[in-house]
Design a protein around this nucleic acid. Structure first.
Lengths: 197, 197
DNA sequence: GGAGTATCCAGAACGCCGTTACCAAACTCG
DNA sequence: CGAGTTTGGTAACGGCGTTCTGGATACTCC
């Protein structure tokens, strides 16, 4: 009896894909449901039947961003020297952010006024934080780092990379500076600060 | 021949004040021109004759935020030990952000979709960055810190405090943790990382 | 004092937005 | 072939930032 449905999984993927591209190419203001629906050749109703509304669609982009982040950070292979691993993770963190800057801005800034991450979404974000905690714990237990709460060291490191990447993406860094070089210097100084003396 | 103007300096101040309060108490979504005008007993026209539009009004809040930040950071008195000064500036940075969290979010996140800082506004932001550079330069010249580009150290420190404050304001930090304590530990580790060995 | 006029600003109008309600369209089954 | 049912495009609603406009206002000049 039903009419053949066109609001299917394929359309869902096309909407998400187009939303991401729209966001990165024309900014948050260009990402309206009318525009999005017109671009993929459907109506705004599709977003409601497939996601439930605009915030729900943005939520998908948010968790997708953390999923990619997570994968990239976990792919960093350990060298046996946890201090060096910490630096490597930091470098991959920046590369991940620069690879999907529009996703990064959804994840960590409030570019999209209609979306606030709920508890579940935030849980997804803290998961991305785990590889960092593991490496730090290893560094402390093996005696490379001074005896401290692993959370403190991990959060400090996260704050550092997040802050630097935010400043870079916001254009707050002095023009013409060697960002990659300064970034690595910062990571190494951070590690030095926690070494057991 | 003219009719006495009511769109005057006093109204301008009242609009800015109300906009700030609206933002901090009810969030970015509540800050609409219609609502704002109704609250202070005028019409939306006032915002256009006094500022030029909504983005221009938000710009005023942005520079006001940096002005306060600037004043607070410059008020930190130097102890003679530049390493200690750097820690103190970091602590005041966090206090400033927590004192005006809504202004901080205008300054460093994109809560307000209609506003993007222009070059002049960004220049205002880098001015707030100067006390930091001075202290770092002093630490390097006096031989306390290792020989490095002062910009690198200053930006690292800024990134660290900005990142930690952002994570805190975004609710990304584990609940129940001693934020102030961990924050100070982070500042001291950062300083240690740059000490001349 | 009344007429004219230059100025100002509240409110209506416009084209967007997210969201919701509705009903024409399109299929299966008796 | 008609009845029934699920589907989704269209249109309506309230709100937004912005623009336009017309009536109210207060001064000058006769």
């Amino acid at each position: 009896m039903p009419r053949p449905r066109t609001h299917d999984e394929a359309l869902r993927v096309r909407l998400l894909d187009r939303a991401g591209r729209l966001l990165s190419s024309e900014g948050a203001a260009a990402l309206s449901l009318r525009r999005l629906a017109a671009d993929v050749g459907t109506s705004t109703t599709a977003v409601y039947s497939l996601f439930g509304g605009k915030p729900a669609l943005l939520r998908e982009l948010y968790v997708e961003g953390f999923r990619r982040f997570n994968a990239r950070l976990r792919a960093v292979e350990h060298t046996g020297d946890p201090a060096e691993d910490l630096v490597r993770i930091g470098i991959v963190y920046r590369q991940s952010a620069l690879a999907d800057p529009h996703l990064y801005s959804i994840m960590f800034t409030r570019v999209l006024p209609d979306f606030e991450p709920d508890a579940d979404a935030i849980a997804e974000s803290t998961a991305a934080f785990m590889p960092l905690v593991e490496v730090v714990r290893e560094a402390i237990e093996s005696g490379v780092f001074t005896q401290t709460a692993p959370d403190t060291v991990a959060i400090t490191s996260w704050g550092l990379v997040h802050g630097l990447v935010s400043l870079e993406l916001n254009g707050n860094l002095p023009p013409g500076m060697d960002v990659a070089g300064a970034y690595e210097d910062a990571l190494r100084a951070n590690v030095r600060g926690w070494l057991k003396t």
